[in-house]
């Protein structure tokens, strides 16, 4: 039953993202038009509180549920991969109006055409895996 807690976190995540409207294409469009604070408020408050939480975990050396040390590995240093990859991701995000989390959540809301986006995203990841050694990182 060790997977049950992950199932519940996923359910909670799905509900929050629908109820916050963060899964809405329109909200993403509005965000990139700088016409509402809504999405900035969601991401901003999540990060602010998240930074406090992570700081607390590190400072108090909080153990995980299994009693192990909590590791938050730093990301590798680079500019090219994050910038180029980020731009490509952003182009797709604003067109589909959905990033990898919302894709699944929206499928659950009954939008079955999202399966095409998920399949194409899986193909995109596969293409990256094939081309990885040829790309600047």
């Amino acid at each position: 039953m060790k997977f049950l807690k992950f199932l519940f976190v996923g359910i909670f995540f799905g509900i929050v993202l629908v109820k916050s409207e963060a899964v809405s294409w329109y909200r993403i469009f509005e965000m990139f038009k700088f016409q509402s604070f809504h999405m900035y408020g969601i991401i901003g408050s999540a990060v602010l509180l998240g930074a406090l939480g992570v700081w607390f975990i590190k400072k108090r050396k909080v153990k995980s549920i299994e009693g192990r040390d909590i590791q938050l590995p730093p990301k590798n240093r680079s500019v090219a991969r994050y910038l180029f990859g980020g731009i490509i991701f952003g182009l797709g995000w604003a067109l589909a109006g959905a990033c990898p989390g919302p894709m699944y959540i929206l499928l659950g809301t009954g939008v079955f055409s999202m399966l095409i986006v998920i399949a194409a995203a899986t193909l995109g990841t596969f293409a990256y895996g094939l081309l990885r050694h040829k790309l600047p990182h």
Binding site: I88, G90, G92, L95, C99, L123, G124, T125, F126, L135
Partner: peptide, 18 residues
């Protein structure tokens, strides 16, 4: 839909996260 999904899937892995 295919182009949008492909860009998301390719970009996110290249950037190492979403």
């Amino acid at each position: 839909l295919i182009i949008a999904g492909f860009l998301v899937g390719f970009g996110t892995r290249y950037a190492g996260g979403c």
